[in-house]
Amino acid sequence: MSPYVVLRVVSKLLIPLIFLFGFYVHFHGEYSPGGGFAAGVVVGVGVILYALIFGMEAARKAAPPYWARVGMALGALIFAGVGFVSLFMGGNYLDYTVLDPNHTYLGQHIGIVAVEFGVLVSVTAVIIAIFYGFAGRERTGDGAED
């Protein structure tokens, strides 16, 4: 547990806001700057901040490493899966128009939201995984071992 009281209190306030901002950037990505890539990084930063302030053990409890491992693959699979769904509904691969039976904009909107969700999951998981990878290491003794 970090001895810095100010950091702890302020980060407790900030971390929910960071997640909220991340999801805002994601779900508002069609109307304003943002989207899955930026939002994924922001959400990942929320977890990283939590880990930096409250320690790795607390962070491992809050966001277990296997989430990151599963999330990486799941996000990429969601993206590819949307492509296969559109393929099986009679269109080309990643052609979202067919997702709506009436072939209006709605199909495009569904496709974009689904695909961006896949990007969000994958990028968040990769960022968390990379951070856990580095933070789980400790500096080994100086000097060559062999």
Partner: peptide
């Protein structure tokens, strides 16, 4: 996205994700 995924797997393999 697949490149990002591959890089994440690479780091996890090199640095042993769960610690």
């Amino acid at each position: 996205v697949f490149v990002v995924f591959a890089a994440g797997v690479g780091v996890a393999l090199l640095l042993n994700l769960s610690g």
